[in-house]
Write a protein that binds this DNA or RNA. Structure first.
Lengths: 342, 342
DNA sequence: ATTGGCACTCGGGAAAGTTGAGTGCCAAGG
DNA sequence: CCTTGGCACTCAACTTTCCCGAGTGCCAAT
């Protein structure tokens, strides 16, 4: 139907205006700002229908309409044409990220960049251990009975563990241990490395104490959930900008941002690098965040995502813009990581 | 003079009440809540004097008094008796921090702890590189021409650097390099290690390219300012609690918290572990933070501080409590670090 | 020096009034 | 059957006015 189309156009207009002005939008203002080719009265009729469908609502009787969560949902699902980044923006992104060398740098720059592009709070997850492969295991004897294990992964991540041994090792023991560990685990995926390592002690058939202790510690480091939970947050100052009636939501936001577990859960839904996932308001599991939305995606080689990144902001946000920015940054991060892996 | 003493008592009472109630305190309320043994009229006279001295002020003519920055200053300098932590608190701190193993853990737990104890925003700086000694340098060949340098320091910090070489190295070359580097730098302080390393290439008199590249990279890692700038922030959610008229200050706060350089500058004044430094309001260099105070101290062995930690909050804060908490946490962190260094 | 008394100030909350954007509905016109 | 201009109605939010009472400064008495 022709009417159906126009109603959607009206919805889109409402969303766009509301996002831009932060104020309920009325029929008159709508026809003025968008050339809809119909009169306010007609728009009012359409609005009535949209309201019946639960896509928009009025804060109070004599006010304009604002989109509901459902309205935003429909908007992002069907009415959003991803606006490509301007070439200036592309260049800015590229040059900003290319200055980075080590992993920390890439991650930190990404958060800042994303926060700046979207003017929202940005979240970037460190590459998960699960997907990466072991590049090297270093064993350093701090004292004869105290070892520092350094685990170097393909993504550039470095994990460290201290092990206290009940016996003293000679330098040769250490060198032997190192080479055995590396022979078993190098190049393997974490999961495979874990099993390969687990098989080690028996294989060698020595007095298993030191080796098994070391292995246990390594396995622990590899399956360490805490490390998998590493995320970096940036652009918190943008929270203040939300202001104007959003104050009540700011506290739960700040709390969530400190709870990295929560953040990971929010990001967790979006692992595929090929899609940008949007969670709107109360769609998520957290009551307190019912007025915030999350725009996220995965990064890494697209058949094998290694992490997620995204932004968090009020439900009233610029979805097309955010989605474009999130996607763009994710792509660049993917490329950079890929280069450094070569 | 006897009057002098009472006036100070009045100032203390004003500070305490204002901190507790967040509201300007009047003469009548004062005598009711504190047994000063004098009448409101007398207190009013004292107040007039205090106001003349610039220690207190009235927001508007017919209101109670609030302390000025100068008033707080005098309060913390002369009227604060550090209240010791309760033994329950001590135990809580100890058990909370003792669960930590690696350095990251200690730092992260400390921030949380400090934020929780003070109900303010907490900042903890990573141990500076400058003071630590080199424990081990690991060289890993990722490809024949690509080295990963891992620098392990006495504080448990691990720095990594990638080096691209114009030539290819054999495993023996790498092993040789590693042992030479370690012989030169191990056990040295960063500063000494830098010079020792710088002397290396000539000493050996080889075609200096790979070695000097590696050395340059190591030196860079050691003098890396970015790493020295590492700070962790926690308890941001407490910002929301400040609320009620403090909203205008919340944005600059959030901004400052993202600018780690700023934070370091704030902490930088307080490096000695034996003193707790307090910066009140406009005493600091940042215009925007004129309504916030910093309570900080150094940690580490007291003759050789390795880092600082502290809290940031509104000028209207519980100074005695904050100072006690900051000091307590700094002490525990010092102990823990000391143990793990043994 | 301290204190009770007293006139004065003034921020801020309650009550009342005003405005105008926005709505829903209806009847007329394509 | 959809669109449109007209119209009466609603109600949040702003402005104005009013009032109260906490708090002050000053003074005269002790």
């Amino acid at each position: 139907m022709a009417h159906e189309d126009r109603r959607l156009a009206v919805l889109r207009a409402i969303v766009e205006d509301y996002v831009a002005t932060r104020e309920p939008v009325g029929s008159k203002a709508l026809v003025e700002r968008h050339k809809l080719g119909v009169s306010p009265a007609t728009v009012r009729n359409d609005m009535a229908v949209l309201e019946e469908e639960g896509l928009i609502a009025q804060p109070h009787t004599s006010a304009g309409r604002i989109p509901t969560d459902k309205g935003y949902r429909l908007f992002v699902d069907r009415l959003t044409r991803l606006k490509p980044m301007s070439s200036a923006e592309r260049r800015a992104i590229a040059s900003f990220l290319e200055g980075a060398h080590d992993l920390d740098d890439v991650i930190n720059r990404s958060v800042r960049l994303l926060a700046q592009l979207t003017q929202q709070v940005a979240i970037v997850q460190y590459p998960t251990l699960a997907r990466s492969t072991v590049r090297h295991i270093e064993v350093v004897a701090l004292t004869p009975s105290r070892l520092l294990l350094v685990l170097i992964l393909s993504t550039g991540r470095v994990e460290q563990r201290l092990v206290e041994l009940p016996v003293e090792l000679t330098d040769d023991d250490v060198a032997d241990l190192r080479s055995r560990l590396n022979r078993a685990a190098m190049g393997e995926r974490i999961t495979d490395a874990v099993s390969a390592l687990a098989a080690l002690p028996q294989q060698v058939g020595e007095t298993s104490t030191p080796t098994s202790l070391v292995v246990a510690s390594l396995v622990e480091a590899m399956s360490n959930h805490r490390s998998d939970e590493r995320v970096v947050v940036g652009g918190t100052a943008n929270l203040a900008r939300f202001g104007e009636g959003f104050e009540s939501a700011i506290k739960p936001m700040l709390e969530a941002l400190e709870e990295h577990v929560v953040l990971l859960k929010l990001l967790g839904e979006a692992t595929s690098p090929s899609t940008v996932t949007v969670r709107i308001g109360a769609e998520g599991p957290y009551e307190e965040l019912s007025r915030t939305s999350v725009v996220a995606t995965g990064y890494g080689p697209f058949d094998e995502p290694v992490g997620s990144l995204g932004i968090v902001g009020p439900t009233r946000m610029d979805y097309p813009g955010s989605m474009a920015a999130v996607r763009a940054v994710a792509r660049y991060v993917s490329t950079i990581l890929d280069e450094s892996r070569s």
